[in-house]
Design a protein around this nucleic acid. Sequence first.
DNA 1: CGACCATTTGATATGGATCAAGCGATGTGG
DNA 2: CCACATCGCTTGATCCATATCAAATGGTCG
Lengths: 230, 230
Amino acid sequence: MLTQTSLSPHRSTAFQVTRSASRPSAAAQTLLDQIDFMGSPMTFARNAEIYGEKEPADYVYKVISGTVRTYKIFDDGRRQIGAFYFPGDLFGLEVGAEHQLSAEAIEKCVVLVVKRSALIALADRDTDIARWLWSFTAGELSRVQKHMLILIKSAEERVACFLLEMAGRLAMTDAVELPMSRQDIADYLGLTIETVSRTLSHLEAKAAIALPTSRRIELRNRKALHHLNS
Amino acid sequence: MLTQTSLSPHRSTAFQVTRSASRPSAAAQTLLDQIDFMGSPMTFARNAEIYGEKEPADYVYKVISGTVRTYKIFDDGRRQIGAFYFPGDLFGLEVGAEHQLSAEAIEKCVVLVVKRSALIALADRDTDIARWLWSFTAGELSRVQKHMLILIKSAEERVACFLLEMAGRLAMTDAVELPMSRQDIADYLGLTIETVSRTLSHLEAKAAIALPTSRRIELRNRKALHHLNS
DNA sequence: CGACCATTTGATATGGATCAAGCGATGTGG
DNA sequence: CCACATCGCTTGATCCATATCAAATGGTCG
């Protein structure tokens, strides 16, 4: 499952440098940081599958570079994107035996791959680690709950929420370089690409945003966007 | 927060009988069962608030009888129901300090109330308990993910999913007595009451269900309902 | 019985989907 | 290096599912 579309695991020189540091104690830092010392980097090409729905969830992943989407495809061919993951984000951690969604690289990605059993073993010895794993799942729950709430809003509100979310996660300034296509955005928001495109054009007409290129979006009036949020 | 619309906590004779049994070891049963020995029963009237969004999440609840809804109200007045909880279900367990949604009794309810700190204390001493708490949150995550997926479907698919879910949770047979109103169903499915009502009528016309009364629903053709599921 | 509330049903409006065409950037082969 | 195919995106025209507005029906409780 890990080999189908990806390079075999190896340690890049960049990560070897990091690994040469002395290993801190379990409680001294978050598990998210510790994974840097436990994981093997793997590279995935654009659109490569990282794992598939219902495959054994034996590994957990941390994004080093690039962007990942998790999604589900329905019988009728429609796709719902569950989440986007950016550098620093952990994904693919399940409590059950199987992945609930599929995961793909949106663009060329490097991810650290860690055996889930290794994390579980740590958690059994260290209450803080166990607590952290629980918190992580609770964070995912919270995120999905928010995502669910945007699906009952109007197209304009959904797009505004999306832009604010992306700006918050991958931009320090008001300019965002989106790594995902209009189709990805549409499938994340439960809209069509035409509606996403039209809504962005409309927000630009209202001077809430600017679109220097189709992937680059500048927030010009966050207040107007937030107002759509409710 | 616990007193506003409810009786003060007390132990009913029914629970005293249960409590008189010798206490099993932590690992011998699930935490869900153990809560029966730890919790104080409280009664909530129809539509009484059990807790509000953003209130401290110091207590966890287990439904003994009745039905509970969790929900969020938006600025524009719309309400989204996050979940329905039936007898035996646990709700209100948060990892963070505050409740993310509000909770209300749909009908007169008896719930067991347990201090969250008591559960956390158990989890710190018992890895199995810690694992169970994590699994519980993961189960909620899984449920919300499924719920999110139905929000992008057509009205008929949403209603069919809802009926199958309710039948699975509160009926042994094909007849379901719904505890919630059309408005509750509509707010759970992201539809209007009119659309819910019309869709039920349509499903009845197609002989997929029967509606002896507005609250009682008989599944006459599960296959047809499942087919709408996809 | 009568008031009230939940539900159903009907008529119309509308937001977003669908179908269709055009546009701009990117890349490829002649 | 240019002509052309391709792909992602935008824009336009029309359609349809669901919302909205409105009224009728039915069940419940004082």
